[in-house]
């Protein structure tokens, strides 16, 4: 393949600029390989996060040619040949150094979400009965590798900086995952609306488009959560029913409200 030219952002929270490097491109090489080559031969103090180099840990998130991607899963031969490749840090989070951003906010957000709370075990050995069909829905969300590329691309966070009012797509997926777990007894719907700011999402699907795990974030996680919020807070029939029916967790509700969900 010959040589590739990389324009890599170098700098810290105060200042920075692009710097050009060249790397020898071999067959099958990914952007992370090229960055490592630059580190080993030209810029030993170039900062970048990485761990598994196989798309499983979600550490090496960056913006490659302006698009949020994992550096370890972006092959050089998939990028336009002969053109300079730009590699920048994620813009939604404060820059620490070079390609490394401070993603600590995400960890704080997760702590604010009520944890999984299972019903009493079905069997005496402490286990539950769950069918694969029910597991499937939750397992899609649990594929998330917490790369935060969906947070990076979300305009509510990226352009409008609503970090204190909106948890972002990653944590809507997390909420969906606990809410839709058939064993869970918690109710996070009021929080989803009031505390976690689901109303800010106007379903532009940018998050779904950048997810390296292919999670259908908008359609499978966010929209059903929005429907639950609507059911619980704005549906007049439900409001009346709630007064007379015993309190139930959303998602395990009666057949009546189940029909309402898609109404």
């Amino acid at each position: 393949m010959g040589q590739v030219t990389l324009k890599v952002w170098r700098g810290n929270s105060e200042s920075g600029q692009f710097q050009e490097y060249t790397a020898e491109a071999g067959e099958g090489m990914v952007v992370l390989d090229a960055v490592h080559q630059v580190q080993a031969t030209q810029a030993p103090d170039l900062a970048c996060r990485w761990n598994c180099k196989a798309g499983k840990c979600g550490s090496c998130s960056a913006e490659i040619n302006g698009k949020p991607r994992l550096m370890c899963m972006t092959r050089l031969d998939d990028l336009p040949p002969g053109e300079v490749i730009t590699v920048e840090p994620m813009r939604t989070f404060p820059l620490m150094k070079d390609l490394v951003t401070d993603v600590g906010w995400n960890y704080e957000v997760k702590k604010q979400i009520a944890p999984f709370a299972p019903r009493k075990a079905d069997h005496r050995d402490g286990t539950w009965k769950m069918h694969q069909d029910d597991a499937d829905r939750v397992q899609e969300f649990r594929k998330c590798i917490e790369c935060y590329l969906c947070q990076d691309v979300c305009h509510v966070l990226r352009d409008h900086h609503k970090h204190d009012q909106f948890v972002g797509p990653r944590f809507l997926v997390h909420l969906a995952q606990v809410e839709m777990n058939p064993l869970d007894t918690g109710d996070r719907i009021a929080d989803t609306k009031n505390k976690h700011g689901i109303g800010y999402c106007n379903i532009t699907k940018c998050c779904t488009n950048v997810c390296p795990e292919g999670i259908t974030i908008t359609d499978n996680a966010i929209i059903p959560l929005k429907e639950r919020v609507v059911d619980e807070h704005y549906d007049p029939v439900m409001m009346l029913l709630r007064l007379v029916l015993p309190k139930k967790k959303s998602g395990q509700r009666s057949a009546v409200s189940g029909q309402e969900t898609h109404g």
Binding site: P115, F116, P118, A121, D125, G126, T127, W128, K129, M130, H131, Q132, A135, V138, Q139, R142, V178, N181
Partner: peptide, 22 residues
């Protein structure tokens, strides 16, 4: 076995057998 069952109580969602076990 106890350590695996405990994971399920903490939110792990394992693949299932046709009769709904891990």
């Amino acid at each position: 076995p106890d350590r695996v069952r405990e994971l399920e109580a903490w939110g792990a969602v394992f693949d299932r057998t046709p009769d709904g076990k891990i």
